[in-house]
């Protein structure tokens, strides 16, 4: 059987045990202003970060988008009615989503990434299949680097989770950057 023969071959061929290194997070870069750093990096990778004073400002944006007749996914009760069928919605319907409003757990200053747990997406497809993505993150949940990020989240707690940094992109044709490959064509992160 493959399993046994592979494991035996590894046991016979592996080098003798060496220790894991000690990862000293104090030795890595720190930023004076993580909000400014996050905003600058996100812009450099095609996204946009906007500081919000209160959620009402965003609530009126959501209502205005809905009034235009677009299919809008909203998962934040603070922003009005939330989509009840989102969890079980079929792909063909989700394909027509214009914009999705989702909450992110933390944001990372060094690379512009936002972590989303599965429960924050409600449906695993929602951050990917929408044409435009809006994330809401609390300013106090911005960390400096990925090391702190993994201290703050429990990446294995839910069935799925993702770091999203900017809109979907590709440079597969002659290295020309094109935004909007398969996923969202734009990303705005509201910092509250």
């Amino acid at each position: 059987m493959s399993r046994a023969s592979i494991l035996t071959a590894i046991t016979n061929n592996k080098p003798s045990l060496v220790d894991l290194p000690i990862i000293d997070i104090n030795a890595v870069i720190q930023y004076d202003d993580v909000v400014a750093q996050f905003k600058a990096v996100l812009e450099s990778i095609g996204g946009l970060a906007i500081e919000l004073n209160n959620m009402q400002e965003l609530e009126s944006e959501v209502q205005a988008e809905k009034a235009k007749g677009h299919y809008i996914i909203n998962t934040l009760p603070e922003l009005g009615e939330v989509d009840k069928d989102l969890a079980t919605q079929v792909v063909a319907t989700l394909e027509t989503v214009h914009k999705a409003y989702l909450r992110g757990a933390i944001a990372v200053a060094e690379n512009g990434a936002v972590w989303l747990y599965e429960h924050q997406m409600v449906n695993r497809l929602s951050p990917f299949i929408c044409q435009h993505l809006v994330l809401v993150v609390e300013k106090r949940n911005i960390v400096a680097t990925m090391h702190q990020a993994y201290q703050h989240i429990d990446a294995g707690k839910e069935g799925f989770g993702v770091f999203i940094a900017g809109p979907s992109k590709t440079a597969d044709i002659e290295q020309s950057l094109v935004i909007g490959a398969h996923g969202a064509r734009s990303l705005v992160v509201y910092l509250v």
Partner: peptide
């Protein structure tokens, strides 16, 4: 999991000079 902090900081910077890839997706359960 914490080792991802090291590898994800290195991977995209080494590959294309991006600070990270756009999507780092963590699959644990169907």
């Amino acid at each position: 999991l914490e080792h991802l902090g090291v590898f994800l900081r290195l991977l995209a910077r080494s590959a294309t000079g991006q600070p990270t890839t756009t999507y780092n997706s963590h699959f644990h359960r169907p």
